[in-house]
């Protein structure tokens, strides 16, 4: 083939592929079933390979996570010491309150909170960019996992399922810029919405500038979520900023969950 013909062929292939990409982008943005089916097949096909590779690279990822922890260790230790002292102070008081609370509930016939119906899952992949922060789990529709379900671990809320294939699912982490979850401040009972951001930080929005919010206040999920149960720990207030002229406070939340070191999570079924 002559160079001119080869160039022409390459140009035609480029145009065809660009047109194909633009069609795929348009179709996918319209939430088409076809794209959804292809996504399910792709996730299911790659799940076993992904699971094995994730296990294979676990020692290396542990090492990188340790390096990350090493740099934050000093600051973390000081915070934990402070927190430990406060917790120790409240411990006996809380036990007494719990006993009293249970006794009063029984007396009034109010049901004691039930445990969640959960299913355990293993993290087999991550993806983080400016616009998304997602994890891939090794369970899907075959285990009863559906879109919208909440994902937690021992530390608190991890995120929500946004896409469920047959044997794997994608979880939108709470620091994703598209994540938006109803929240309550534990001490003041004020309602707000926690939202992720492109820099990976979490903000508690729509809290009036007149409200008193302090550093260290705990944020939990509100009771208005369809799939997300109430009173799941999210994080604590890291920084409160007041912007002149803004009717709302800017509140940064420090999540309890370390997204990059988690291995096992629980998906809460409705």
């Amino acid at each position: 083939m002559t160079p001119t013909k080869r160039n022409l062929r390459n140009l035609i292939v480029l145009i065809v592929i660009i047109v194909l990409c633009l069609i795929v982008i348009t179709v996918s943005f319209k939430d088409s079933n076809l794209i959804k089916k292809v996504k399910i097949s792709t996730l299911d096909f790659f799940k076993p390979i992904q699971e094995k590779t994730f296990a294979f690279f676990k020692p290396v990822t542990n090492l990188t996570n340790s390096i990350r922890d090493f740099f934050n260790a000093g600051e973390k230790l000081a915070v934990l010491r402070e927190e430990n002292a406060a917790l120790r102070k409240d411990y006996s008081k809380n036990i007494n309150l719990k006993i009293e609370n249970n006794a009063l509930r029984e007396l009034l016939g109010i049901e004691i909170r039930k445990d969640f119906n959960t299913v355990q899952a293993k993290v087999i992949g991550f993806y983080k960019s400016k616009w998304q922060s997602e994890a891939i789990l090794n369970i899907g529709r075959s285990s009863g996992v559906l879109e919208g379900m909440a994902v937690i671990n021992e530390d608190g809320l991890v995120g929500t399922v946004i896409f469920s294939a047959n044997n794997s699912c994608k979880v939108r982490l709470i620091n994703d810029s598209q994540s938006s979850i109803g929240t309550r401040i534990l001490s003041s009972r004020k309602l707000g919405i926690i939202e992720g951001s492109s820099e990976g930080k979490i903000y508690l929005n729509y809290i009036s500038a007149e409200e008193i919010v302090q550093k260290g206040d705990i944020a939990i999920t509100s009771e208005f979520g369809e799939y997300i149960p109430s009173e799941v720990l999210i994080g604590k207030v890291k920084r409160v900023t007041e912007i002149p002229g803004d009717p709302y406070k800017k509140i940064e939340i420090d999540p309890y969950v370390n997204f990059w070191t988690m291995e096992y999570v629980l998906v809460i079924k409705k």
Binding site: L22, S28, K39, G125, E134
Partner: peptide, 14 residues
Amino acid sequence: LDLMVGNIVGLSAL
């Protein structure tokens, strides 16, 4: 890549 984790399917391909 887009089918597995992308927000806009087809963008990375493009």
